[in-house]
């Protein structure tokens, strides 16, 4: 039950994009078409969950016993970069269909703040192993839901008569603000 609450909280109440502001660069960059945003979202779920597991083990079994917490940032980004590289090679060899679907989004994920942010939040909230898996998968799912909804809105925005000065990124940010207002409605649902 607690795990379910944790998952719902991570997807809706503390949505990583709209309430914690992480991963906004891909949110604005690759949300122009629905198909690309689906690919990006799935790639983030996959990498964020794996990265959380690896960084959690690295933090609790390597960095902490040797009192090297200060090097956390460096260690985490290296783990994420290596993992992304490895996943790319593995998918290329093993699953052509999955590689074609996620391929071009994988390199972008290294510098996606959502992935790095989730791994840091896992440490900050002092989760145990099961909670780490649930929280990271749910947060990434929240990212995917938000980016897919936003891409749907942006496809409609292209044909909307927007004032000239607000076209493009400006109206996209305002739209994101209105979406974020809708997600604010979930506040208080889960503590």
């Amino acid at each position: 039950m607690d795990l379910l609450l944790l998952a719902i909280g991570a997807i809706f109440v503390n949505n990583i994009l709209l309430a914690q502001y992480l991963g906004n660069c891909p949110f604005c960059g690759v949300s122009k078409k629905l198909s690309t945003s689906v690919g990006m979202g799935l790639a983030v779920i996959f990498v964020a969950t794996l990265a959380s597991i690896f960084t959690w083990f690295a933090y609790h079994y390597i960095l902490k016993p040797y009192n090297m917490e200060f090097i956390r940032t460096l260690a985490f980004i290296l783990i994420i970069a290596a993992l992304v590289q490895f996943v790319e090679i593995f998918l290329k060899k093993q699953s052509k269909t999955l590689f074609n679907a996620l391929g071009i989004y994988l390199p972008l994920i290294t510098t996606n703040c959502a992935v790095m942010g989730i791994t840091l939040l896992n440490i900050k909230y002092e989760f145990n192993f099961i909670e780490v898996i649930v929280f990271s998968a749910a947060s990434a799912a929240g990212f995917t839901i938000a980016i897919i909804l936003f891409a749907g809105l942006r496809e409609r925005l292209i044909i909307a008569p927007v004032p000239k000065a607000m076209q493009g990124t400006a109206i996209a940010l305002v739209t994101a603000g209105i979406m974020s207002m809708a997600f604010l409605g979930f506040t208080g649902m889960v503590k």
């Binding site: 709209l18 940010l173 994101a176 603000g177 209105i178 974020s180």
Partner: peptide, 12 residues
């Protein structure tokens, strides 16, 4: 959060 997005969008 919504204020942040709106403020940035309007400034842009």
């Amino acid at each position: 959060a919504p204020g942040a997005f709106l403020c940035l969008g309007i400034l842009l």
